[in-house]
Simulated scan of single mutants.
Amino acid sequence: MHVEAQKASAVKLVESMAVSGARNERGEVRIHESLDELSTDLAYHIAELSEASVKERGVFAIALSGGSLVGLMGKLCEPPYNKTVDWAKWYIFWADERVVAKNHADSNYKLAKDGLLSKVPIVPSHVHSINDSVSAEEAADDYEFGIRQLVKTRVVSVSEISDCPKFDLILLGMGPDGHVASLFPTHSVLNERDEWVTFITDSPKPPPERITFTLPVINSASNVAVVVTGESKAEALHLAIDDVGPDGVSLPARMVQPTKGKLVWFLDKPAASKLDCSQFSE
């Protein structure tokens, strides 16, 4: 099939899926019938943002997380996207990373390399992984320094309202406790306002040492997508999205509120099972 025809059929497929795209003040919420539909919609969304960003800025700066997220991005490695996406213009970052060797099973870099980066023609020098041979604190400082250099050269944009980097897309998952990136509930790093990248050495989930983007950086992005699947996350998702009043637990996922960017939640039905759909408007 010709590339343009493949692209047209991808658009048709996404349009025909039973995606319920509703919204409240917490962003756009897309609930999918199956993981396959979610993957299809996510790939389409990322490819559209990539195309728009390359057209506007000449590059696409995207930050990834770990977990099941990379697997759900897998359709980007298939037609039409493996041919239509301008992979040479992608710059890859990590919204959080475990401070382990790059070939370690816990490494988000390894996860992304095995599941995505090795399957598409991304320029190796555009892949910005952490220095895995230093302490968590040094790794965070080093990573922030690298991002600052790329902001200077405009590979990464800068926010109009703060000095924060403005990534074209930050992709996040969410844990059953409502954590995003490596920002865990009640952890002091949730209050970090000065650093772009910070570190923790006491993650409640192993491995303990991690680096993570701070909330100001996440909330400065042009686009944020939070991908949540599975029934084990339904309660945290309800607290993160629904209007739960002043008594609502202040979950990290609820603190994701892009100041001038667009927030989209990609959910499967089990994860969305406790949402109060009466709060959404089409």
Rank of each mutant, 00 (worst) to 15 (best):
P258L: 03
N82A: 12
A18Y: 11
K113F: 14
V99I: 11
H45L: 08
A271Q: 02
G66M: 06
D86P: 04
T186A: 09
D194A: 14
H179V: 05
T212M: 02
L111K: 01
P270I: 00
V120M: 11
V189Q: 13
D202G: 01
L13K: 14
E15A: 14
L239G: 07
A181Y: 08
L150T: 00
L172N: 01
S16C: 10
A18F: 06
S118L: 10
E282T: 15
T153D: 09
N24Q: 11
L116S: 13
F199N: 03
D202T: 12
G58T: 04
V226H: 03
R26F: 10
I200S: 12
P204L: 08
F280G: 00
L111S: 08
S39Y: 04
L111I: 08
L38Y: 04
V134K: 07
N223P: 02
T186V: 12
E33V: 11
R254Q: 02
V11I: 15
N131V: 00
V264G: 04
D243E: 09
E25H: 12
L72M: 10
K260C: 12
T40I: 05
L13S: 12
V29T: 06
W94N: 07
R148I: 04
A221L: 05
I218H: 11
D142H: 13
A47V: 08
V151S: 15
D114P: 04
Q257W: 08
D86V: 11
I122S: 01
R26E: 08
L239S: 12
C77R: 07
S222T: 06
V217E: 02
A61E: 01
E56A: 14
D268K: 01
M255R: 08
S182Y: 04
K262N: 07
E144P: 12
W87C: 09
D242I: 00
W94K: 01
K83D: 01
L267W: 03
S278E: 09
H187E: 12
A221M: 07
E56T: 12
N191R: 11
A140T: 04
E137C: 14
S129M: 00
A225D: 10
K55N: 09
D114R: 03
V59K: 13
L267G: 06
L183Y: 07
K89N: 15
I161C: 02
A88Y: 06
A18H: 11
F199L: 02
A5C: 10
S20K: 14
L111N: 11
V156E: 00
Q149G: 10
S133Q: 12
P165M: 03
D168E: 13
E51P: 06
P270A: 03
A240G: 06
C277L: 15
L49Q: 08
I147H: 07
E282V: 15
I122T: 04
E231T: 02
L72T: 10
E209I: 01
S222V: 09
A43Q: 09
S129V: 15
P206Y: 01
P206F: 00
V189T: 12
L72C: 00
A63S: 14
I62K: 03
T40E: 11
V158I: 10
G58S: 04
P121R: 06
K205F: 02
Y109P: 00
S68T: 10
M73D: 02
S182G: 09
F60R: 14
I170F: 14
K12Y: 05
L64E: 06
T201N: 13
I161A: 11
L72F: 02
